[in-house]
Design a protein around this nucleic acid. Structure first.
Lengths: 250, 250
DNA sequence: TCTTGCAATTGGTTGGACCATTTAATAACC
DNA sequence: GGTTATTAAATGGTCCAACCAATTGCAAGA
């Protein structure tokens, strides 16, 4: 039926990164894993530098990143104190969901509750403020998502772009910023890996888009919003069983 | 009638900050003000160091902060490229709303649309999942917000704590993280200044809380949610005219 | 016992040197 | 002349060593 197309470009981006990024990621994961508890202190910079076999500068830049994520609080003379994960930036959510190679399904579902509610409200506003000249781009993205001859990742990317497009339609800059953060979040490696694990299908939401487009063209935006609400019931809940179609063995 | 109590402690925390924080803030404001356009490049680190009269290290740490905020993208060999503000972290929203001493009322309203919808959905879930032993803390916060003998800022803080409390009641860690970010956002200096400018009243939402508490104790959570929805109409929209009562001249 | 002051710890800053990557100008080649 | 390889300049990344500044705890002294 649908041929699961192999990756055309099996290349991985070179893992060559900046030193402090590597250090920051390791420390970040250590905090997420609970190896450093909230309230406790990170080892002194000089000590970390020695352990990582790296200059103190790199450690400092790494800690600066952690501070920006709200994972630690740094005070001169005192050290870097680990903060509760609930106080951290949403940017750490992705590595929290997938850490140690395991998917935290409970957290994934909690994330789903928030994101789907968020996206529903945003889409609702977008439908109310829709202007006809914006329909073309939405239709184009829909076609990409539905095209099973394309790579899975490209189709997912189109789905994420729909989110950004809807935010642009709202004409609200805060929705625009939020949507772009959500896009980045969904495009992050941990979330991709999670989707691979759950074997999600990018075409899942195409019927919803079709229903909305049809309703809008029929001049019945209310129906489009209803279709969205119904979709929440479907998309909001991860399938209890992995999708069966086209299963890959690994 | 109600005596606008003067500040008991007129002390300001010493503005002694880390160098790179100051540099980061200046650069951040420059980007927000449009002095550096999206797509253009920041001056080289060495140049900035000279201009700021600081060491290159401090400039680097500042740029690292900007990178974490998504304001610039740094590539070795090439410089630091300014990113569109829509791609930045929500953490820059506060200084965007109040920059150059002026409040961007349009952006403030856009923020309000998003935040009030967000908080409404979260509160709705909280009401559905409410457990009786959690009512005490909510009532305590309500009393603080209603107590006009307290400092205005303390009453606002209680209001922000309500948000966090509601997120805890949902039992959803992502709502918890989101609520704490919102609290930090609302507690930021630009937002405080904005509230001072608009002369907002911390007691505004007390009737809403009372209505919800009453409905919950009456075993009618539906009514509580209805009260919330009605409150959206009131709170969601900033008053077109500044509040008249107790007006300060300046 | 309490206060004061000192010293150790730890983050913050500096200056300078050198490495790695990117870009553009330049030279070599066809 | 146009294309490709080379080189050099610009710029961020890392390292080193030293010193400054804030915090904390301990010890001496009142």
């Amino acid at each position: 039926m649908l041929s699961m197309r192999r990756k055309v470009t099996p290349f991985r981006p070179p893992a060559r990164r900046r030193l402090h990024e590597d250090v920051a990621q390791q420390l970040r994961d250590a905090i997420i894993d609970g190896r450093y508890r909230a309230g406790s202190k990170l080892p002194p910079e000089r000590e970390l530098a020695e352990e990582f076999r790296v200059n103190r500068t790199s450690v400092r830049e790494a800690i600066k990143v952690l501070e920006g994520l709200g994972l630690v609080s740094v005070r001169q003379g005192d050290g870097a104190t680990v903060q509760p994960l609930t106080d951290a930036s949403l940017d750490v959510l992705a590595p929290m969901i997938l850490h140690g190679g395991k998917v935290d399904l409970a957290l994934l579902e909690e994330m789903n509750e928030v994101v789907s509610l968020l996206m529903y409200e945003m889409a609702r506003l977008a439908i109310e403020r829709f202007r006809s000249e914006q329909v073309g781009e939405l239709r184009r993205l829909r076609d990409v998502m539905a095209d099973t001859t394309l790579e899975v990742e490209a189709r997912f990317a189109a789905g994420r772009d729909v989110i950004v497009l809807l935010s642009d339609i709202t004409g609200n800059r805060v929705w625009q910023m939020l949507a772009r953060r959500v896009r980045g979040f969904l495009a992050s490696e941990p979330l991709r890996e999670t989707r691979r694990h759950l074997q999600r299908d990018p075409g899942r939401v195409v019927p919803v888009i079709d229903a909305c487009l049809a309703a809008i063209e029929a001049g019945k935006p209310k129906d489009a919003i209803d279709a969205l609400r119904q979709a929440l019931q479907i998309i909001g809940q991860p399938p209890s069983q992995p999708v069966r179609a086209g299963g890959r063995s690994r």
